[in-house]
């Protein structure tokens, strides 16, 4: 691996731009990775190791790695981090970089479509189950509420997600 300052600067600027603002606080102590369920489960590029790669200027090289999508967003890393890095924000910033380059699995598209169309990322028709447990068939959510759905669509359209051509 070559150390190229230009690539390091670009990777750091990209991550900070996507919300991983604490990345340069990292001293690579590894406490985040010691408690990360994703690292434990075997995802190679999360927490400390992802930050190491980014601080080495590796950005495009790791764009196809799916580890970041295995992040549980549990934020235990943030709780134990002694330097205020907020590692989960770095993982999510990298995920956002990937997402905006459309580098994510097709299975993730469904929940975006669901969110856009019904306001619910997880959507199944609930009427029968709700009736069965004695609740009104229609929940008081956006699920069948046209105005609420339009509001959600307006918020999504008016941002980078709306420009990805998913909807």
């Amino acid at each position: 691996m070559l150390v190229e300052q230009k690539k390091i600067d670009e990777a750091v600027a990209t991550i900070i731009g996507f919300g991983g603002t604490g990345i340069l606080n990292c001293v690579q102590c590894g406490a985040c990775s010691a408690v990360c369920p994703g690292v434990k489960a075997g995802f190679p590029l999360l927490c400390r190791n992802l930050i190491r790669s980014l601080l080495n200027g590796q950005l495009e090289e790791i764009i196809e790695d799916s580890s970041s999508w295995g992040c549980q967003a549990c934020n235990r890393c943030t709780e134990v981090c002694p330097q205020g890095v907020r590692p989960q924000e770095v993982v999510f910033a990298f995920r956002r970089y990937q997402a905006n380059e459309l580098a994510f699995s097709t299975s993730a598209v469904t929940s975006q479509m669901n969110l856009y169309e019904t306001g619910h990322a997880v959507f199944t028709d609930p009427k029968e189950l709700r009736r069965q447990v004695g609740l009104p068939e229609v929940p008081p959510t956006s699920a069948f509420n046209k105005q609420a759905q339009e509001e959600i669509q307006a918020l999504i359209d008016n941002g980078p997600m709306g420009e990805l051509g998913l909807f």
Binding site: G30, S33, A34, R48
Partner: peptide, 20 residues
């Protein structure tokens, strides 16, 4: 090399070390 992230209390007063 790696900071310990936590300890979990195991039976018989042992501790599970969560390290890296």
């Amino acid at each position: 090399k790696g900071k310990v992230g936590g300890l979990e209390m195991l039976p018989e007063d042992k501790l599970r070390v969560l390290a890296y």
